[in-house]
Design a protein around this nucleic acid. Sequence first.
DNA 1: GCAAAAGTGTTGGAAATACACCCATGT
DNA 2: ACATGGGTGTATTTCCAACACTTTTGC
Lengths: 247, 247
Amino acid sequence: MSVKQKPDGIPTAKSLKAIQTEVESSNRIALSVDCVIFGFDENKLKVLLIRSDMKTYQDKWSLLGDLVRPDEDLDASAYRILKQRTGLSDLYLEQVQAFGKVNRHPAGRVVTVAYYSLINVQHHKLKILDNELHWHDVDSVKDLAFDHQEIFNTCYSRLQKRVQEHPAGFSLLPNKFSLRELQNLYEAILGVKLDRRNFRKKFFAMDFLIDLGEIEVNVPHRPGKLYKFNYNKYEKRGKKWVGIDFL
Amino acid sequence: MSVKQKPDGIPTAKSLKAIQTEVESSNRIALSVDCVIFGFDENKLKVLLIRSDMKTYQDKWSLLGDLVRPDEDLDASAYRILKQRTGLSDLYLEQVQAFGKVNRHPAGRVVTVAYYSLINVQHHKLKILDNELHWHDVDSVKDLAFDHQEIFNTCYSRLQKRVQEHPAGFSLLPNKFSLRELQNLYEAILGVKLDRRNFRKKFFAMDFLIDLGEIEVNVPHRPGKLYKFNYNKYEKRGKKWVGIDFL
DNA sequence: GCAAAAGTGTTGGAAATACACCCATGT
DNA sequence: ACATGGGTGTATTTCCAACACTTTTGC
């Protein structure tokens, strides 16, 4: 941020004072954060939405969000919203981008910054008592309030890309998971069917899974081994990760 | 954006009125756009920077930016800045993300949204008369003012990824270009050496280059054929693009 | 014993890589 | 004539996709 127009039309850098004047002027804008909170349950990818009670958007669902406070980092806003909504901290959180059409919000000019978050539904389950809040299957999400459909679509695409390039998906799973659960997760996120043997081969070849020496319990079939992701090894190896199949 | 706290601590959706009150309150924040303007000249990837004249950042370079106006779409702000600075419209422009640490700017709380732009330096050359503005080799960019180094790094990484997945790089080239120029461009952006025969093979296999039936002039060696990118075919084929080599 | 998923290797084809020589132009 | 980059093809390797049977457990 550092532009002004000189009288002759050639722009140059602004002085601190000039900028301060502008920053303190009425030239300010309401800024919000909206979170696309993903969960994985019953082999479906879910998103947490709240029912809008605005007349304009009667009975439409919307993302969780709030205004950014002037003394709060942008990321901190997103964490605060998640904490308020899920009671959880230490969540996977990633900024996607800003959405800033002039008329995107009926309450006036509000620019919003979209984040998505990945949460482990097991730990979270107890928290949603509020019946205004619901988990929705991602493929039945449509016609959201405001521009939230566009925001959701953008975030979902970003997630699809992300899980292929980084070990992000594990945040959606319980701490201990079977390879079947991992594969179901990828299939749900990417919307594809994957070959079981090739899927296992790929993950074992990466060598980032720790065999916990435990097996599933209470499954009506042969129990699978349980694993966890080796974040340490991943960090040490410079976060190299080979891509997963195609979209 | 749609959260409030009920008296009992369970958040629920806000009424339009409640939000309006907040939006109109002093809870607003200065919002800026900063542009990382890339150019390609003399086989080097360049970025356009301006000298900061703030005392705090004496003699440091910074990105081009300005405050977002309340009645202006976010993208429109970025276009406005580019237009002011380069005189060009119809530029390649892409939002990257927002940067919103509380103390990122000495003039007060300013959240900024970063964009990068790709411009064809040939057309642009005449415009920079202002000696506060300079093209810098991307690999000599360091120690920028504010948090602009971080913004630049993020945008540059995004560009590197982008040109491998989409036909974005052509915006940096003249309308008619030789395959050598195209390869030099990719090598400059990605910072790698590529095999000439394989590079050509890959681009010809994609079948998105139109042979213009013209050749280079004024080169001290055998002139190469000139091509342009076939955007129509790219659109029609559903924007499928196979990746370019590795990073 | 039956249903349901776990676990496990091989092979063929496609794609990427490595690599060297002759050609056209300007000086 | 020579210096500079243009233009071209093949052999090898690597990676990916397709594919089926035996094992373990719960009921």
